[in-house]
Design a protein around this nucleic acid. Structure first.
Lengths: 100, 100
DNA sequence: ACGCGAACTTTGCCTTGCAAAGTTCCGCTT
DNA sequence: AAGCGGAACTTTGCAAGGCAAAGTTCGCGT
């Protein structure tokens, strides 16, 4: 009836789902902005980002901004595709839950 | 920007999200049907159901059907309300992810 | 009395989230 | 030059929780 297997566990976890959702709304996000928005400890945040990066979902962009190091993150093609598929499952759940 | 805190952890977990979604589609579900649909071990399934029951989200209905014990499960009012709220968050995520 | 199936509990493993503290890097200040 | 401070990242340790396999209970039917 539903493909709960398709609920990619990597994306489904709360913290990472937050990251992915934010990344989907803008071309790129600086680390500090993500941290402020998601209210995670930096250790926790960087770990999730690394997990997503290792899965090929997130690209890491290192720059220097105003004489400060600034690392930004962005969805990769693969990441966007995976997220889109994930959203499709969510959508079917929402739809099923609304009709009743 | 998003209320990821509202993503009730109790419901968000894959297994329990599956249960809640199924329960939302019909008035009640026998244990065996849930098990078949979700392909969980009965130990795992009953544990999730107990967790949801203790949270007041799920009602347990014990009957005897065809001379066999048959336990069914249904959403409570509270459960349906919580699930509806959860779905609202999902919906905002889906919406945010689609526009871009 | 025995077996069987449904539902449930117990046990144990193992993953994983999470935070706190520590590390590295580097530009700026004094 | 030495030290401060902030950004980003690593390490460590803990605790929670998912999950399956095996064991338990409780009827009913033969």
């Amino acid at each position: 009836m539903f493909d709960f297997d398709k609920l990619d566990k990597l994306i489904h976890e709360r913290g990472r789902l937050g990251i992915m959702t934010l990344l989907a709304t803008r071309p790129s996000w600086p680390f500090q902005d993500l941290k402020a928005e998601l209210k995670m400890s930096d250790g926790n945040l960087v770990t999730h980002l690394r997990t997503l990066h290792e899965a090929g979902h997130v690209a890491i962009i290192k720059e220097v901004h105003l004489d400060r190091p600034q690392t930004s993150y962005a969805l990769t093609e693969k990441g966007r595709a995976a997220f889109t598929e994930y959203l499709a499952v969510l959508e079917s759940i929402v739809k099923a839950g609304k009709e009743k």
